[in-house]
Design a protein around this nucleic acid. Structure first.
Length: 355
DNA sequence: AACTCGGGGCG
DNA sequence: CGCCCAGAGTT
């Protein structure tokens, strides 16, 4: 029954007609006003975009008024809304429509798609709302509603996911009122099927929603997060006590290498030299507890250890300590401790010199 | 396919 | 603080 497009659309539109907000762009089918609203609402909440929509329509009632304004004027009025390339593209497209097209917007999906700043979503929205064409919109709301109701776990920001959700929305759209269908599914996602803690018990789809039945609502839609590779600077303090012992500590914090061992670690914001290490607050606190005789770098050239999400720029510091230490780990025993490869490689290259 | 572009609201 | 918002353009 979920595969019955008419049933899905009817239920959705019925909900929409009873629950929709009164919004100014719902009072018109003028392509200029609809286009303006759709550009403004890209990645922007209705509440944030609404006052800008009013301001723009007052200052630029027609596409000719917008086209005849200066870019500076347009950007000034856009100020605070963010994503300023939208404003520049808006202005460029207004000039194109006004001066090259006699003020007339394209009336096909393909024609609309050619406009600067108009992608698949916006072209589909204008085509369906203004020209009654059956082009399905897929925005953040649609991803959420469809992934949950149909139980689709394909990442929404993957190439296959984008195609899959577009195809499903296209199959579901009511060709007799595509504009209403598109606005209904978006409104439903924005007002009812919300990202966190939706009230599934009173949902019109509660009995058929796959995510609801399988208790997967909090986990849908799936989105793969881009692995931002961060650069971090690690300084391992390799202590040499007179009795051939050193200091090792266990990583207990959540994160990489949990519960593995390492030499005392100082993280810094950039690469350190002996002089700058000595000024580091964490190093100062460390050195106050022991009598450091000498400081030298083991690796003159920084060792880059690459993880999937971070690059560790690592320096091993050799600290000769003029003392004995009861709690230390004998160098002859450090191979018994679980350590990261980064540490293991160091030990292999360092120990031959000490044995 | 991954990056970049903003400001604001919310848990 | 991280996620998300009526996405699109560039690399």
């Amino acid at each position: 029954m979920l595969e019955n497009p008419i049933w899905f659309g009817n239920k959705l539109i019925s909900w929409y007609l009873q629950n929709k907000r009164d919004l100014p762009w719902r009072e018109t089918k003028d392509p200029y006003a609809i286009w303006l609203s759709e550009i403004m609402l890209q990645q922007t909440r209705v509440a944030q975009g609404l006052p800008y929509f009013e301001k723009f329509l007052t200052q630029f009632p027609t596409v000719f008024d917008l086209a005849n304004a200066s870019e500076e004027q347009v950007l000034k009025l856009w100020q605070g809304l963010g994503y300023y390339s939208r404003a520049r593209n808006l202005h460029a497209t207004a000039k194109h429509i006004a001066f090259d097209n006699k003020g007339k917007f394209p009336s096909t999906y393909e024609g609309l798609l050619k406009l600067k700043g108009v992608g698949d979503y916006t072209a589909s929205a204008i085509a369906s709302i203004c020209f009654k064409l059956p082009t399905a919109v897929v925005d953040g709301n649609v991803y959420r509603v469809l992934s949950r109701v149909f139980g689709i776990a394909t990442p929404i920001n993957s190439t296959s996911g984008i195609a899959q959700f577009k195809a499903l929305a296209q199959k579901l759209i009511d060709p007799s009122c595509p504009g209403t269908f598109n606005q209904a599914i978006m409104e439903f996602g924005a007002r009812f099927c919300v990202p966190s803690n939706p009230d599934c018990s009173t949902c019109i789809f509660s009995d058929v929603c796959i995510a609801n039945k399988q208790k997967q609502v909090p986990y849908l839609p799936v989105k793969v997060k881009k692995a931002v590779v961060k650069n971090e600077f690690y300084n391992y303090l390799v202590c040499l006590f007179k009795d051939r012992k050193t200091l090792m500590e266990q990583r207990t914090d959540r994160g990489i290498w949990q519960n593995l061992y390492q030499f005392p670690l100082i993280e810094s914001k950039k690469q350190l030299q002996v002089s700058t290490l000595k000024k580091d607050q964490e190093f100062i606190r460390f050195s106050e507890q022991i009598n450091i005789q000498s400081i030298s770098k083991f690796n003159d050239r920084v060792i880059v250890h690459k993880l999937s999400h971070k690059h560790l720029y690592t320096t091993f510091w050799i600290l000769e300590i003029d003392a004995l230490y009861e709690g230390g780990v004998p160098f002859s025993e450090i191979h018994l401790l679980p350590v990261p490869v980064l540490i293991q490689n160091f030990i292999y290259s360092f120990l031959p010199f000490k044995n």
